[in-house]
């Protein structure tokens, strides 16, 4: 971990905020993570939102938090690119697992669209 100035559209914004506050970028990241966690919990209690909208909010906030933790706390933004590649590599397999196993339930009551459900042969289910 080395102290350096972050650049780029998002990381640069973090850096600008940090410079404005007279703090380091980790502190700004910490505040942003705390804020979005409040928002995350609150979203579930707001009435009148559809299930899909709540899900979209939760996923959106999750992505922001993952960016903050992996990018700044785990220092992927400042480390050589090989570490980012190493971090992304298993996500491919994780995505395959989520698609191939997670979304392959033949008895799904969620009526998942065909494009996201694997076309497996489910004969083993009855056999």
């Amino acid at each position: 971990m080395s102290e350096h100035k972050y650049t780029g559209p998002v990381a640069g914004l973090f850096q600008k905020l940090a410079d404005k506050m007279g703090k380091d970028v980790y502190f700004v990241n910490f505040l942003i993570l705390m804020f979005f966690t409040f928002f995350e919990v609150a979203a579930v209690y707001v009435t009148g939102l559809s299930v899909n909208l709540v899900w979209a909010i939760l996923i959106g906030i999750g992505i922001i938090k993952i960016y903050g933790i992996a990018g700044f706390f785990m220092h992927l933004k400042g480390d050589p690119i090989i570490y980012t590649r190493t971090a992304i590599f298993p996500l491919l397999f994780a995505a395959l697992m989520l698609w191939g196993i997670g979304l392959s339930n033949p008895a799904s009551i969620m009526d998942l669209p065909n494009w996201c459900t694997p076309d497996w042969d489910y004969s083993y289910v009855t056999n």
Partner: peptide, 21 residues
């Protein structure tokens, strides 16, 4: 940490499969 991602991905895929049912 790669291997750890896979461990938790297996939990999530199992959960998602059951949850959709």
């Amino acid at each position: 940490l790669i291997s750890e991602v896979m461990v938790f991905a297996s939990f999530f895929s199992a959960y998602l499969r059951m949850r959709t049912g």
